[in-house]
Amino acid sequence: MTTIPAITPIPAPEPTTPGRATTDHTAPGHAAPGHAAPGHAAPDPTGPIAARAVDVVKTYGRGEAAVRALDGASVDIQRGRFTAVMGPSGSGKSTLVHALAGLDSIDSGQILLGDTDLGALSERDRTLLRRERLGFVFQAFNLIPALTAEENLALPLTLAGTRPDPVWQAELVQMLGLGARLRHRPAELSGGQQQRVAVGRALIARPELVFADEPTGNLDSRAGAALLTFLRDATRSLDQTIVMVTHDPGAASYADRVVFLADGRIVDEQVDPTAESVLSHLARLDAQVGG
């Protein structure tokens, strides 16, 4: 097994100027390493950047008990692509995605969504940003039990005081195969149906970015596969940007690109992964972390 140098595949552009807020489509040093050759620049995948983390540091706890969940993590999320974030437990993958989603504050570094610097936003503005520009799918408990499937679907828009575009909603419902279940409450839906409603809710406002945190963790393999296929198709046909945290190599294989985290940094990435390639990568990472 080859030893992978512990370098960040996406070098942070000029870490000394964290205030920089431009969207740089062709950042210098922007790397897209192939399967076996980290650090090796490749043309693919490139394209517009939907979100970017720059040198992000996040520490939980204090003193002796302090845990550095993110230790200078930098990553670019390309628009219209399905990105998976993987890493051993404790690697900081959830923290990174929560930071990108404006759910968690960071100690230093910068999070950009499009042109917006999340760090400069108030709590309220971050909430409005989540409502208008982001979508979420969690592992479980995605839906409000008191609301019907349809109401859950429209939730981000109704919270903002608007209504979903009926054409778009109908299209989503049709794509997700939820037509007959719209008037049902979450308790009357299967786990797969519940997650599909959650995906629909994440997409209803046509957000710039959708975050999915282990969306298939509670599903059987068939329902999980259907959901992941839908997410991948959404990036293709709807030009939707999706970031998914997962620990399942099979789930990660649906993504266009996999980013690996260890010890709070991005240590590697893969484009067009397969389950096997992801698994072998993880094995190497484990060995590296263990060593």
Partner: peptide, 16 residues
């Protein structure tokens, strides 16, 4: 708690 967390994540403001 979880429901409230979800609502907040999806975009319910503190005021709401």
């Amino acid at each position: 708690t979880r429901e409230i967390g979800l609502l907040r994540a999806v975009g319910m403001t503190r005021t709401q």
